[in-house]
Amino acid sequence: MTTIFAHYGSELLQGFGQTLLCSVISLFFSLIIGSMFAIFETTPIKFLRVIARIYIEIFRNIPLLVITMFFYVVIPLYLFKIDGFTAGTIGLTIYTSAFIAETVRAGINSVDPGQMEGSRANGLSWWQSMRYIVLPQAFRYVIPPLGNQFINLVKNSSVLAFVAGFDLMYQGNVIASDSLSTMSTYVCVGLLYLIITLPLSYWMRYLEKRLA
């Protein structure tokens, strides 16, 4: 194991960085997209609710690998070129946003409907009440589940290995076949994933307890 780190340290580190980078980018965009669809789902406008429902149902029920490969293989075939890292990040963003939308929607629903009615009665518009009264409260509830989504995101980013996205798993595969010490390479890769995910999951558990 130490020999793997000594020989392939820079590759592993590069993979670690790419995994982290793609997870953070995906988290950022899927938070925006997910919250947008969650708000759509709770608007009084039926058209927006239907759009949100369709988006969420489709992308929750198709494997991440299919979505990612679609962007890596099909889009370049007909439209424009997308490299592996980008394709993987887009796939992760779309897939995760559907789950985040569900999480945020549950958060919005958990806020007492009286809050919305009260602020509407005070003369705020629907959007203003959502923006200033409901959403801030909803987000407090959804921080632990969102943290868990981020952990899932980091784990799921291993899908980049399928599209040569130079992430940790890709480097792991390359190193494993180069060094031929398969098991110890994957143990190293596992440790690097745990460095990101384990503290996060303990932190989320702590937050969950404090909120409960």
Partner: peptide, 15 residues
């Protein structure tokens, strides 16, 4: 449980 839950499934498959 904590270790396995926090690893990518792909890695468990390789293991």
């Amino acid at each position: 449980i904590d270790i396995i839950r926090n690893l990518p499934l792909l890695l468990i498959i390789f293991f």
